[in-house]
Design a protein around this nucleic acid. Structure first.
Lengths: 146, 146
DNA sequence: TGTAACCTCTACAGTGGCTGTAGCTTCATG
DNA sequence: CATGAAGCTACAGCCACTGTAGAGGTTACA
């Protein structure tokens, strides 16, 4: 393994991405098929490693893989305007804000449920009661559990 | 369908739970196998409907199905102490709080990325740049994308 | 009674984003 | 040359559904 060629394990260590996940990214076309050694093992370039780091970082920021695919395409065309990339990031920001708002209303509801704790029997348990009877639940607008 | 017996479609309408999802809940043992009509169609009781409403409400609050299974078991034993139910709700609250915190740090990062928007080329695009180079990212501690 | 429209049935595949497993082969080190 | 770590492929499983196909059941109205 001389300079500039990384095994999949080295890629994994350098990016914090699991080996299986790297192979998975290759399988779904996010990473190119790398060279192989004479013994059929994957050999990556530094460029591949940077691409993987990009993907990982975007995943950490919650971008879905499809958005990352777009971003990678854009990153490969540096002379084009960056509005599209900004738009993807803006969409992601909006998605995150929506999820935060939703989770905050769930949080309030759970806090209300727990505020009535009294150490009694299930029969008088506020938690069970609220779950059983939606009308006891103040916020009515939470949808899917993000 | 006289009194007290609901078709799966009526169940769906009354609880807001999709027909397939009801069958799925039966399959994984969250809902009991209901009676069948002479034509092999499911016939539910009001009790079944209440149980499904309980499940849906708990799902809306983000409880995982395993937790709901526990809660249902508890709800079936009203004379037992409700500490276990409270504990499940408390765990769920904590999980929600963790997810909110994580999403908030993601939100900040995305806002920082977007604050540098300038309408130029990809080559100077802050979004792409930050994704490509983790060191340009201030918060370093976000883990899995919630 | 006919028939059209709708509902329900089973069984299975697909979603997203991985993760884990089994059973191999290859590689690096002593 | 032997051992153990790392790599290979192929596939199953996770969560919580959702969608589809193709069959059969039920209901409303003429």
């Amino acid at each position: 393994m001389r300079d500039g060629r990384l095994t999949i394990g080295q890629m994994s260590r350098e990016t914090g991405c699991k080996v299986q996940t790297i192979r998975y990214y290759e399988q779904i076309g996010l990473l190119p098929e790398p060279e192989r050694s004479s013994g059929n093992q994957r050999l990556y370039s530094n460029r591949d490693r940077d691409r993987l780091a990009f993907i990982r970082h975007a995943r950490e920021l919650g971008f879905p893989l499809d958005a990352i695919r777009e971003l990678l395409k854009l990153a490969d065309h540096p002379s084009q305007p960056c509005e599209a990339a900004d738009a993807i990031a803006a969409a992601q920001l909006e998605a995150v804000e929506i999820r935060i708002a939703r989770l905050q209303s769930l949080k309030q509801e759970l806090e209300r449920m727990l505020a009535h704790r009294h150490g009694g029997k299930i029969a008088d348990c506020r938690v069970i009661e609220v779950l059983a009877d939606h009308s006891k639940c103040s916020a009515d607008d939470h949808v899917a559990p993000s």
